[in-house]
Design a protein around this nucleic acid. Sequence first.
DNA 1: TGGGTCATGTAACCTGTTACATGATTAG
DNA 2: CTAATCATGTAACAGGTTACATGACCCA
Lengths: 186, 186
Amino acid sequence: MLKHGILGLLNYGSMTGYEINKAFKDSLSYFWNAQTSQIYRELQTLKKNGWATDEVIEQDGKPDKKLFTITESGKAELTRWLIDEDTEYAMRSPLMMKTFFRGERSIEENIAYFDALSEGCDAFAARMTATPPDIEGYAKEIGDPMKALYWKMTVDFGTMYAQMYRSWIEKCRKELEEIRDEHTAD
Amino acid sequence: MLKHGILGLLNYGSMTGYEINKAFKDSLSYFWNAQTSQIYRELQTLKKNGWATDEVIEQDGKPDKKLFTITESGKAELTRWLIDEDTEYAMRSPLMMKTFFRGERSIEENIAYFDALSEGCDAFAARMTATPPDIEGYAKEIGDPMKALYWKMTVDFGTMYAQMYRSWIEKCRKELEEIRDEHTAD
DNA sequence: TGGGTCATGTAACCTGTTACATGATTAG
DNA sequence: CTAATCATGTAACAGGTTACATGACCCA
């Protein structure tokens, strides 16, 4: 998966590992966090698979860098991945795993749990709404508004997700408050 | 993470690997899919960590089975995990990764892409709404309505997620249709 | 002189996936 | 007779995380 993300970025233009890392942090980290070390490792795999070539560029005043370029074979692989239909998307949510077992803890503690989630959700939403200006700049940079459109779609997803997530938290919180109040009323 | 899920299940009562596997498929698979082989491996890790003990039970007409029981140390670990606050939840969505790079394909193909997603979403929602009756039975079985409450919360999340996901798909689809129609109008 | 940016990775470990392997009983 | 259920795993590989390692340049 990460391989294809890197391939997708290289398809926009040749990049160094450092730049790919930054691009990930700037635009894809909302829904895919990649470790720097993993990016450098995957780049080696791309090279091994013949999907990219690299070229060392010497710089003065700065360390040397390795510029990676996508190959025809890499482009073919990117296309293969894009047209491959796997509508089955295995959701993997640590959040739900933890929520599932919260029956072990007290109502009071779980209300606090949802409050903490709420804060995390706000932080996520804030990062999300801060993105759009970057998209505009990016669209100009790569000179293709169509590409920015799909980026915008992922941001929309993030925004809608945050909103849904917030409603869910509030719903759960209310349910717990009702139970607590029933107990207190006894 | 899976370790803690297994620990959570064992905390409800002693179980065999087979039963844990079934419990995962029945109740946690919506947001966490676990491979059978991984469950058996993690059970060995729990044992190694002293979080669970096992006992071989001979049966006639059926193969022998290994019953796993949570230890005090395992319960402590479960609690540690539950109270540990990590509001940072790294979302990892292959779906968004693919959507991000769809600019490489034609508008027409991408409309078809969203239609395919829509079908996958419906399938997920259908599985989700089929769950509630199981929760009722489960609540009676473990005799603790509080535990079923948190299960229900995860199902609610799934339902709300599916709804949000569907709206997002429709929104994207409409955007693409508008662009297509603008082109056709020329 | 301390922190940020530029720029590269390695090593060990942990977690998840895929393929394979076995074999009895029971219900339709 | 065939498929499902019961019941266990191993081996190899792929993918992700954490910790460590280096070093120059530039700005405040």
